[in-house]
Nucleic acid binder design. Structure first.
Length: 257
DNA sequence: ATGGTGGACAATCCA
């Protein structure tokens, strides 16, 4: 089983990257974030040509999540239980014995903004959702743009970046609270202590890829039993070097069975 | 120390 995650920063502007990647790599599941498209304009047909069925929830300007898959979908829901519903940030989908939680975690703007408090609370709401609806002994993936770089080795300049909404003790605690429900960071499992492996390079930083000024904020986590079946997890830096790239890159993992 | 770019949409918001 192969799964990938990609913050596309507009699906309609990234089809030239997504479609060839699907054709070449044939993932079973492809999770997208920041699709930036209303549901009635989602490019369903372009995925169908490659035999991918797609589920999605979005709005015309911000956020939006989707999962493309070739497998039969058993069950799908969008958003957390409580209000505001925030449906365009979370898909929970079940395919056979696998459940995928695809999230676009709120970025948080800056530490003084209400959006940052909302972000921290959002992790707490997600943990409550897990406790209510899912069982950590099952095969579950949590992936997406989690807007957290978990450790010093996940950013290029930890001293300078410390205090950013994606890199500080509060956000680490909020993230780790969810992770401690039963998730393993599959990338770190296969690349322990390996620095300089990033999934996001800001458009606004000149030559950020060449200068390795990145962040590892896009993740694939798996429950323990499933992580035990993982064979690899890698970052496809080439997806940031294409023409008109997203500022994020594709992360993908393979599992036995 | 500020602003840089790119996406949505069509004046700004978001990252």
């Amino acid at each position: 089983m192969k799964i990938a995650t990609y913050n596309v920063n507009s699906i309609r502007s990234r089809l030239h990257i997504v479609l060839p990647w699907l054709e070449k790599n044939k993932p079973d599941y492809f999770c997208l974030q920041e699709t930036k498209v209303a549901d009635d304009k989602f490019p369903v047909a372009e995925f169908a040509v490659q035999d991918y069925h797609v589920i999605y929830q979005g709005n015309k300007q911000y956020s939006g999540v989707a999962i493309a898959s070739r497998n039969k979908l058993q069950k799908v829901s969008f958003g957390l239980d409580d209000q505001p519903a925030d449906p365009e940030r979370l898909i929970v989908a079940t395919y056979d014995d696998l459940t995928i939680i695809n999230t676009y975690v709120p970025q948080g703007q800056d530490k003084e903004s209400p959006q940052y408090a909302y972000k921290l609370a959002w992790f707490g709401r997600l943990k409550k959702y897990l406790q209510k609806h899912l069982i950590s002994q099952n095969s579950i993936i949590w992936c997406g743009d989690l807007n957290v770089a978990p450790e010093n080795i996940d950013v290029h300049d930890p001293k300078r970046i410390l205090g950013h909404v994606c890199f500080n003790p509060d956000v680490w605690q909020a993230y780790n609270e969810v992770k401690s429900w039963g998730f393993v960071d599959v990338f770190r499992l296969h690349h322990p202590n390996e620095a300089g492996q990033y999934t996001f390079f800001d458009y606004r930083v000149r030559d950020s890829v060449e200068r390795k000024m990145g962040w590892r904020v896009d993740h694939i986590l798996a429950t323990k039993s499933l992580a035990g079946r993982s064979q690899s997890c890698n970052i496809d830096l080439a997806s940031r070097l294409r023409e008109k790239p997203s500022d994020h890159v594709i992360v993908y993992a393979e599992f036995k069975g």
